[in-house]
C-alpha cells in the first residue's frame, strides 16, 4: 500500500506540536531558568540575571533542601520497601485462589479512590490524635500509656505509614496484573514436581515479575519525587524539617510561604531539574540491574 505522506504528517503534526508546546518548551525553559536569578516564575526574560550554577550551589547549601532530600530518600527507600513488599504479598495472596478475592482487592485499593486530603485528615485526627485517636485508645485498652505520634521525632514515620497505607493498593493491582499473566501450567508442573508455595513464589513468580517490579519501582520513584500533599497536610501552616520534601521546598521557593515573601524561581527551577535527573538516574539504574527480557512465557 502506498504511503500517503501528507496524511501521516497531517495526523502526527498536532500531537508533535502539542508535545513541543506542552512538554518540551516547559522543560527547556525550566532548564534555562535554573541558570538564572529570577524572582517571579512568570517574569519576563529581560528580568533574568545569569548566575551559572549559583542556584544549584545555593540549594545544595540550604539546610531546608538537605532535610527535604533526606526525607525523600527515606520515603523512597523505607516506604518503597514497605509498599512494594506489602503490595506483592497481597497480590500473591489474592492470586492464590482465596475466597472473596474481589472484595479484598477492592478493599485494599479503596484508599486510592478516597481523596488524599480526606485520607490524611483521617489519619491525623482519628488515628494519631493524642486524646481520642484510634492508636492511643488501643494502647489504653491494653493498659499502656498513649504515645505522641505526631511529635517532631515521630511525625515523619507517622506520615510515611499513612502514605504507605494509601499507596499499597495501587501497586498491588499492577502486581496482580503481572501475576495473572503467568501461565497456570507452570505452577501445576511445579506442584507435581513437589515445589511448595514458597519455592513456587521464589522460583516462578518473582523471576517472571521482573518487568512489573521494574515498572513499579519507576512508578514509586516518580511518586516519591512528586510527594507533596501529605507533607502539606502534616505541616499545614509552616513547613517542618521532619516532613518537608523537595517539591514543598520548591513550592516555597517559588511562591513564598506564610509570612515569608521572598521568591526565588531560579532556585525552584534548579530543584525541579534535580528531581527530574533523579528520576532519570533511577530509571536507568533499575533498567541496568533488572532485565526483563531474559525469560519468555
Amino acid at each position: 500500500m502506498k504511503k500517503n505522506k501528507g496524511l501521516i504528517i497531517g495526523f502526527s503534526l498536532p500531537i508533535v506540536i502539542t508535545l513541543c508546546v506542552m512538554y518540551i518548551y516547559p522543560v527547556m525553559r525550566t532548564l534555562l531558568m535554573s541558570f538564572f536569578q529570577i524572582e517571579s516564575v512568570t517574569g519576563d526574560t529581560s528580568t533574568w540575571t545569569f548566575c551559572g550554577l549559583g542556584n544549584y550551589a545555593n540549594v545544595f547549601a540550604s539546610a531546608g533542601f538537605k532535610a527535604a532530600m533526606w526525607n525523600m530518600f527515606k520515603i523512597w527507600l523505607v516506604g518503597g520497601i514497605l509498599t512494594l513488599s506489602l503490595a506483592l504479598l497481597f497480590a500473591v495472596i489474592l492470586c492464590s485462589g482465596i475466597r472473596f478475592k474481589k472484595f479484598f482487592r477492592a478493599a485494599i485499593y479503596l484508599p486510592n479512590v478516597v481523596s488524599a486530603v480526606a485520607l490524611a485528615t483521617m489519619w491525623i485526627q482519628y488515628v494519631y490524635n493524642n486524646d481520642y485517636g484510634m492508636l492511643n485508645k488501643m494502647l489504653e485498652m491494653v493498659g499502656l500509656e498513649g504515645v505522641k505520634w505526631l511529635s517532631s521525632d515521630m511525625k515523619f514515620w507517622a506520615m510515611l505509614f499513612a502514605f504507605v497505607f494509601g499507596a499499597v493498593g495501587y501497586y498491588m493491582l499492577i502486581f496482580i496484573s503481572g501475576i495473572e499473566r503467568i501461565p497456570v501450567d507452570l505452577y501445576e508442573a511445579a506442584t507435581i514436581d513437589g515445589a511448595n508455595k514458597i519455592a513456587q513464589f521464589t522460583k516462578i513468580t518473582l523471576p517472571l515479575l521482573r518487568g512489573i517490579i521494574k515498572t513499579n519501582i519507576t512508578f514509586w520513584s516518580v511518586n516519591t519525587t512528586t510527594f507533596f500533599l501529605w507533607s502539606k497536610m502534616f505541616s499545614p501552616i509552616d513547613s517542618e524539617a521532619s516532613t518537608i520534601v523537595p517539591v514543598v521546598y520548591l513550592y516555597n521557593q517559588i511562591f513564598g510561604s506564610k509570612g515569608s515573601y521572598t521568591r526565588d524561581a531560579g532556585a525552584g527551577a534548579a530543584v525541579g531539574i534535580l528531581l527530574a535527573l533523579i528520576i532519570l538516574v533511577v530509571y536507568f539504574v533499575v533498567n541496568k540491574i533488572i532485565k526483563d527480557d531474559e525469560l519468555e512465557f
Binding site: 539546610a63 531546608g64 532535610a67 517532631s152 517542618e240 524539617a241 516555597n252
Partner: peptide, 16 residues
C-alpha cells in the same frame, strides 16, 4: 522567617 534556608530546620528546633 527572614532566613528561608534554615526556616524548616529552625521550626523543628523551636517545636522541640
Amino acid at each position: 522567617n527572614d532566613n528561608a534556608d534554615v526556616k524548616e530546620a529552625s521550626n523543628e528546633i523551636v517545636i522541640k
